[in-house]
Nucleic acid binder design. Structure first.
Lengths: 214, 214, 214, 214
DNA sequence: CATGAATGAGGTTTCATTCAT
DNA sequence: GATGAATGAAACCTCATTCAT
C-alpha cells in the first residue's frame, strides 16, 4: 500500500522520488510486458506470463508496483510513445516541404520498427484493443486522437501550401496509420519481412495518393 | 452427438439435415455473437455475455450447439464471409477496367458496412486477434491469405494491362485492407460516422495511389 | 413420464407388458453400455458416450427408457449375472468332489470371459466402483455378498468333507474373486492375453492353496 | 510459476527449494486427497471436495499448488509408494529364504494398512482406475509394471532355488497383488475388519500355493 | 415412442488482487 | 521492498435430466 507509486500517483504526489531499485523493477516489468504482448497479444498477456518472462517469482510483484493492469499498460504506452517521439521529430523537422515531411514521418516508424521490433507491436496491440468506456484508458484514446489531430493539421498545411491535392485529411491520416500498424503486426509474426522495404513502398504509395497532380 | 452439428461436421456427415429449430438456435447464437463482439471485442465476448444477449439461460446451451469457442467463431466468420461475397462479386464483375474494379471492391465493403454495421466489425475483430499457432483457427489464416492472394492477382493483371503503375501488390493490397478495417472498427464505436463518404474517400485515395500517371 | 418402464417399476406394475420395440431399445442400450464401460471404465461411461456408441441421436432416449443411471447399471448387472449363471451352474454341478467343483467354478469364469470379453469387464467395473451409501445400488452390494456367501458355504462343506485344508473361507473366496477380476480387467486392455491359460493357472494355484496335504 | 512446484518440476529445476509453508500446504492437500479418495473413491474426489476437506476456501488453491488433477494424483501415489517402501524393504531383507520373504512382503502391506488405513486405499483407487492412454499417467502404469516385474524376479529365484513349486510367476504375483488390494478396499469400508488376521490368512494361503511339495 | 433442445449443477482452470510475513 | 500463499470471480465445458413437439 505504501510504495504504490503508480504513474498517476507520482504526478499527483510529486515529492516521493522513486528509489533506484523501484524504478529498475518497474522498467524491467514494462520491458517484459512489451515482449509478452508482442508475442502473444494484448489480451493473453496475463500477469502470470509477464512475471514469468521477467523472471519474477510472483504476480504480486506486478500488482505491487503498478496500480492494476491499466496502469501497467499506461506505462507501456508512455514508454513507447516517448521512444517514438525521438524517432519522428528530428526526421520530420529536417525537411521543409510537406511531401518530404510526410515521407519522413512514415519512414521514421519503420526505422523504429527495425530497431525495436516489439515496442511498436505492443503499442499497436494495446491501442487497437481499446474500447471507449474503459475508465482509466480514456487517456489513451485522447492521446491517440491528439496525435492524429496534429498530423491532420500538418496535412492541412500541405494542402493549403499547394503540395497536397484535395482529400479528407482525417481519412488520409487514418489510412496511413492503419497501413503502418498492419506492417508492424505482421512483422512480429513474420521475422523475415523486410520492414524497410515495406516502409519505402508505403511512403511511395501515400506520396502518390497525396501529391498534387499538376 | 445431439445438436453438435458444427459446420464441419455437417459437411462431412451430410445426411443429418438440421431441424428448423436447431438451425434457428444456431443462427440466433451466431447473430448474438456478432453483436456482442462488435460491441465489446473478441476477447471479452464470453459465452456468458453471448448467452445473455441471445436470451439463453445458460452458457451450456452454446456448448451444446457449438463444439467450443473456436467452432462458434468459425461459424461467425463463415457467415460474414458468405455475406460479404454477395456484396463484392457482382459489383466487381460489373466493371471491365481494373481501376473501376478496384473502386468497386473498396466501395462494396462500405455498402456492406452500411447495411450490416456489426457483421464486418465482428469479422475484423476475430481475424485481427488471430495468432499463428491456435490450432483450429489456422483455417482462417489460410482463408485470409487466400483472399488477399486473389486480390494481389487482380492487381498484377491491372499492372500488366498498363492501368496501374508500378508498386508492390502485396503492400498495396494489405494497405487497402488495413484502411478499410480501420474504418469498420471506428464505425462501430462512432455511429455518426458517414461510412459511405469514408468509402468514397478511400476509393479516391487508392485510385490515385495506383493509377498510372501518363 | 408414461412409458418409463424401469426394471423396478415393471415388477411393481406388472401388467404393462413391455412392447417388442421397447425391449429392443433397452437391450440395445444395455449392450452399448457394456461395451462402453469395458472400454473406458464405469465413471467415464456417460450417457453421451453410450448413446453415441448405440447410434442414438440423443441421451434423452436413455433417460426415457431407464430411470436414471443407477437403473441402467442395474440392468447391466442383471444381464451379465444371468449370463454368468448359465456358465457356472452346469459346470459346477457336473462334478462331485469339492476340489473339482472349485476348479470348475474358476474355469467357468474364463470360459465366459473368452466368449463375452466385455460383459465380465463391465460387471467388475460396476461392482468395483460401488460404495456403501449409494442408495439404489445397495441391492448390488447385497447380491454380491450373497453370492460370496454361497461360495463360502460350498468351501465350508469341502472343509468338513476333508477335501480342503483349514483356512478362513471368506478370505479364500474373496482372494479367488479378486484374482479372477484382475485377469478380467487386464484382458480388456490387453487383447493378446491368453485368458484360458491364466484360468488354468489360477485354478491350479487355488487348488494347491485349498487342498488337504495328506 | 509461483508455487507450481510439481514433483516433476522440482526434480528438473532442483535449485528452487520449496518454502516451508508451501511444502506444508502441498502436504496438507495431499493428505486431504488421500482421505477423500479413500472415502468416496477416485472419480468422485473432486477438487471441491478435497478443498473442503482440507479447509481451503476455493478449488483455485489446489490448481495453484498442483499442475492439474494428474499432478496431484502423481504426488499422492509418490507419497504412498515412498511410505510403502519403508514398510517393505526392511521386512523382506530381514529374511533369507524366499518363502519367508514372500510372507514378509505380504504382511508388510498389512502392517502399513493397519498404521495408515487410508493411504493404501487411495493408492489402490488411483492405480485401479487408470486406463492406458491417459497421457501424464503413463508413468504410473510403468511404475506399477516395474514393481510387479521385480516381484516376479524374486519369485523366479525362489523357483530356481527349489523353494517354490512350478507355476507362472506373473499370474501368481498378480493374484497376490489383487488379493491384497481387495482387503485394502474392504478395510476402508468396514473398519471392524481385522486386517492383521486377514494378512496372516493371505500369507498362509499363498505359502501353500507356492511351496514345493516334497 | 422418439426426438433433440433446454436446463442447471458441477467440474477444472486461470485471472488479478490482497495480505501476512 | 519483496515474497508467494490465499482468495473469489469468471471462464469454458460436460453431465444427467426434463419437456414440448
Amino acid at each position: 500500500m505504501q510504495a504504490r507509486n503508480s504513474a498517476g500517483k507520482q504526478k499527483s504526489a510529486g515529492k516521493t522520488k522513486p528509489s533506484f531499485t523501484e524504478t529498475g523493477r518497474r522498467a524491467q516489468i514494462v520491458a517484459a510486458t512489451i515482449e509478452v504482448i508482442a508475442e502473444i497479444g494484448y489480451h493473453k498477456a496475463s500477469f502470470a506470463k509477464i512475471a514469468q518472462h521477467a523472471g519474477l517469482s510472483s504476480t504480486g510483484m506486478i500488482s505491487y508496483h503498478f496500480d492494476g493492469r491499466d496502469d501497467l499498460m499506461r506505462e507501456v504506452v508512455t514508454e513507447v510513445m516517448t521512444l517514438a517521439e525521438g524517432y519522428s521529430r528530428a526526421r520530420i523537422e529536417a525537411h521543409e516541404s510537406y511531401t518530404a515531411r510526410l515521407r519522413a514521418a512514415i519512414e521514421g516508424n519503420f526505422d523504429l520498427l527495425a530497431d525495436y521490433p516489439k515496442h511498436l507491436a505492443a503499442l499497436v496491440e494495446i491501442l487497437g484493443n481499446l474500447r471507449g468506456g474503459d475508465p482509466g484508458m480514456d487517456f489513451f484514446l485522447d492521446t491517440t486522437e491528439t496525435n492524429l489531430a496534429l498530423q491532420v493539421e500538418q496535412v492541412r498545411k500541405g494542402q493549403r501550401a499547394g503540395e497536397f491535392c484535395d482529400f479528407d485529411p482525417w481519412v488520409m491520416v487514418r489510412a496511413i496509420r492503419a497501413a503502418i500498424d498492419d506492417v508492424v503486426l505482421r512483422a512480429t509474426q513474420d521475422p523475415q519481412l523486410d520492414v524497410r522495404a515495406a516502409g519505402r513502398e508505403l511512403a511511395d504509395l501515400f506520396d502518390r495518393a497525396t501529391r498534387r497532380t499538376s
